[in-house]
Every structure is written in C-alpha cells, then in structure tokens.
Simulated scan of single mutants.
Amino acid sequence: MKVRVDEDKCCGFAACLSVAPKVFDIDSDQIAVVLVDGELPEDLHACAREAAEACPTDAILIEE
C-alpha cells in the first residue's frame, strides 16, 4: 500500500495526524505530508485507511 496527499485538496485540518501520527505530519504550509516513503508497513495500513476516512476534504489517496 502507498499513501499520497493531494496538496490541492488538503486544508490542514490535521485529522490524519491525530489518527495516524506515524504516517502523517503537517508541514510549514499547513499541508499534510506522508512520513513513510514508498510502501507503507503493513502494521500502519489500518490507521492510514482510518485517516483517509477522517479527512474532511478527501485529500488522502491510498493505492493498494
């Protein structure tokens, strides 16, 4: 699984950070960034999916 953030959709609400702090952070422009480069470890899949569901702007994209 790979995770991306659509920067054009991200509003910096930080719901992803509160749900999955090992996967996401907020940069200086108040945009979510993915902390894991490449394939996400399997133990983080569930929290990444939960973060995608929690995102109010659907800015988190998951590629299976």
Rank of each mutant, 00 (worst) to 15 (best):
K2H: 12
V3W: 04
V3K: 05
V3S: 04
V3L: 05
R4A: 09
V5P: 00
D6T: 02
D6I: 06
E7H: 09
E7F: 02
E7G: 04
D8N: 14
K9P: 00
K9M: 05
C10Y: 02
C10L: 02
C11N: 08
C11H: 01
G12D: 03
F13W: 08
F13T: 04
F13V: 07
A14V: 06
C16R: 01
C16A: 10
L17V: 15
L17N: 09
S18F: 11
S18D: 12
V19W: 07
V19Y: 10
V19C: 09
V19A: 15
V19P: 04
A20P: 04
A20I: 04
A20Q: 06
P21K: 08
K22W: 02
K22H: 11
K22N: 14
K22S: 13
K22M: 09
V23H: 11
V23A: 12
V23L: 09
V23W: 07
F24P: 01
F24M: 06
F24K: 04
D25G: 10
D25W: 00
D25P: 00
D25M: 04
D25T: 10
I26C: 03
I26E: 10
I26M: 13
I26V: 15
D27G: 03
S28V: 07
D29G: 02
Q30M: 08
Q30R: 10
I31L: 13
A32R: 01
A32P: 00
V33A: 01
V34M: 05
V34Q: 07
L35Q: 10
V36E: 14
V36K: 13
V36H: 11
G38L: 13
G38R: 14
E39A: 15
E39H: 09
E39Y: 06
L40H: 10
L40A: 08
P41D: 13
P41S: 14
P41E: 13
E42H: 09
E42V: 11
E42P: 04
E42D: 15
D43T: 10
D43W: 07
D43G: 06
H45G: 01
H45N: 11
H45E: 15
A46V: 12
A46M: 09
A46H: 12
C47M: 12
C47K: 12
C47T: 15
C47Y: 03
R49G: 07
E50T: 14
E50Q: 15
A51S: 08
A52G: 09
A52R: 14
E53V: 11
A54R: 11
A54F: 03
A54P: 08
C55E: 00
C55V: 02
C55P: 00
P56M: 10
P56R: 09
P56Y: 09
P56V: 07
T57E: 12
D58I: 00
D58N: 13
D58C: 05
D58S: 14
A59Q: 01
A59I: 01
A59N: 02
I60L: 04
L61Q: 15
I62K: 11
I62H: 11
E64D: 15
E64Q: 07
E64V: 01
